[in-house]
Design a protein around this nucleic acid. Structure first.
Lengths: 351, 351
DNA sequence: CGTTGGCACCAAATCGATTTGCTAGGCTAC
DNA sequence: GTAGCCTAGCAAATCGATTTGGTGCCAACG
């Protein structure tokens, strides 16, 4: 932009956006005074909402440059009631899935000039609700809600028209868009793959009891399709964590008739299962085949590399951002939409 | 709080914080009208900055309840010029280290009522600066800047007194606090460990050329202490990624006299190195010992489990938050501080 | 009885922008 | 010559809180 008129880093030049020497920020009124026009006019050259004479515009722009004026977004937000900020509430930004999702969202809205505000709910429904209220009070223009527990449905279409898009819940919110992955199909794929390899006693380690059941569903469907009868003994709970996966697998191994394959509801759980199987001296995939779900980075790091279902975290975030933008910009005002992203099986070594 | 007066979820009760039936948000003025007092008084019962009569306070609180009033934080921020929001700019929230750091920061400031705004700079100095300006315009009360490149020092003490704390740079900012880990000591530890195991040709895969050199320093110090001469051939660049680590390791392996140990500047690089060593048919740690840096979750997932240096990401974030709060609340206004967090070696299987 | 002083409250200014309605000229068209 | 219409600009209201400087009122005190 100013490429030709300034060397890369003239160390002594005033930092752009630096405060006026006085220490307090320059206001639009001061710009107006220096340019010899009214605040109205300055505002108009900034927004382009009304025409401004050639010469006047020049003066104003010069004044802006000279004073290093930067508009105060808070004042602007107060007047326009739009903050160009979205909030995302996730269980934990530390989790690979949610951090990638958040990045997708941030990238999507950033391009439209929106910033991203992050809340960690730790999966607590109460905190989720508190956060929604909090960010509403803060005036965000949109919310992305990634809730693990169904209970979060407690709150309706949010504040005075602030759009929300939900991630992954099966819940059908009256006025909120929803983006989710096709968990059922993904699970079906993974389970069918295990069956195709010749497994006959296929276990599943699901999430915690509070979690949704779309993944269970696919598992059952695939079982039925392969003519394998569902055995409740082979369906156990994990808690999405490696340790939980390990514990669950140990339980399965101590069954009178242990499984010859296990479908894990996420990759971390699968890694825990791998730990347990290894510790029992069995081999993967020959004695027991295992598949995960998510295709997180770790899936390729563990050994054997995990056969898993690719869960498009980034695209989920991006899509959520797109839907949100859509509504925030008023481009879409109709009924609630649901977009479901496809899952694909990625075969590696563990099954 | 209202525990005794309401059942857990009276499904038909008005959602707290829901808009007035009208659709638009309730303002303080409306509360005042309903309570038969002036806005001033309502404000005072809210803030407790001046005394309000017992009866009046009761009326006001009743009105607040009845209307479901929630203060508009934007208006409040405009008046008080405090937003109770901090921004953190990181290279990529997707990286294990930065997501954990962000969580630590978020936890620390959340307790004081602050929210967290996240910016992904992808390590681009230009974007870092843009973000700082942007969040300053948005009126955040503090900034945490996690920059990989030293260049970021370009910008001074930020806006009109908005405190910044830097993460990990060696740079000494005139007015900004700094928190970093003792990279030099950590590297020294890791390298010394390799030497103690009997390695004599110890290579290092560092970060990209733009990165800081504290880790290199520790490596050299440890070498000297063990009486091993520094061999420039054994010092190569990675790019913090697994693929980069693998490439760098391949280069080392094709040396006329390959190393018998390698210290990698982060865990991902180490994992890449492991890949390359494995592919060459060599064994770890017997043929080549490897250590990483960070102790990310993946360090225990890869096989062999990584001997690495624990880099306290969470504490770094928390500390940064504490320093920031300190200044935002005006509890500390003195000169810039630097806190350096210790690193410890964690021995596993790879060395 | 007059004064001091504290209590409880209110009116109005303020934060920094945006936006609506209006006006003064200059121009064309009939 | 005048009605009509742009154009370019300004004054003032507005968004929703906080905060300063008063103002009645009543009790206590000299």
């Amino acid at each position: 932009m100013t490429q030709s008129e300034a060397p890369p880093l003239p160390a002594n030049a005033p930092v752009p956006g630096a405060p006026a020497p006085g220490g307090t920020r320059v206001t639009l009124a001061e710009v107006a005074r220096l340019a010899g026009v009214s605040p109205t006019t300055v505002s108009h050259v900034l927004s382009g909402k009304r025409m401004v004479g050639e010469a006047t515009r020049g003066n104003v722009q010069a004044a802006i440059q000279k004073l290093g004026y930067r508009p105060n977004n808070i004042a602007r937000s107060l007047r326009t009631s739009r903050s160009r900020m979205v909030a995302v509430v996730v269980p934990d930004i530390t989790s690979p899935f949610y951090s990638v999702l958040t990045r997708g969202l941030a990238d999507a809205v950033y391009e439209a000039g929106y910033g991203t505000y992050v809340c960690n709910s730790d999966g607590l429904a109460e905190r989720e609700n508190t956060f929604v209220e909090d960010v509403l009070d803060r005036g965000v223009d949109g919310i992305v809600m990634a809730s693990t527990n169904l209970a979060s449905g407690g709150m309706g279409p949010s504040g005075p028209g602030t759009p929300i898009v939900y991630i992954g819940g099966a819940f059908d919110h009256p006025q909120a868009d929803l983006v989710r992955t096709d968990d059922e199909e993904g699970s079906r794929l993974a389970t069918a793959h295990l069956a195709a390899r010749g497994a006959t006693r296929i276990a599943m380690i699901q999430g915690p009891p509070e979690a949704g059941s779309a993944r269970d569903e696919g598992y059952r469907v695939a079982l039925a399709a392969s003519g394998i009868e569902f055995d409740p003994e082979l369906m156990v709970h994990g808690d999405w964590s490696r340790a939980g996966g390990s514990r669950a697998m140990q339980a399965l191994l101590s069954l009178p008739q242990p499984p010859d394959a296990v479908f894990c509801a996420n990759d971390l759980t699968a890694i825990g299962a791998v730990d347990a199987i290894r510790k029992a001296g069995l081999s993967i995939p020959d004695d027991i085949a295992v598949t995960g779900f998510d295709d997180a980075d770790v899936a390729t790091i563990v050994s054997p590399a995990l056969t898993t279902v690719r869960n498009p975290a980034y695209d989920t975030g991006r899509t959520a951002g797109a839907l949100l933008l859509n509504r925030m910009l008023g481009e879409y005002t109709e009924d609630n939409r649901t977009v479901v992203l496809p899952c694909t099986l990625v075969e590696r070594e563990s099954a």
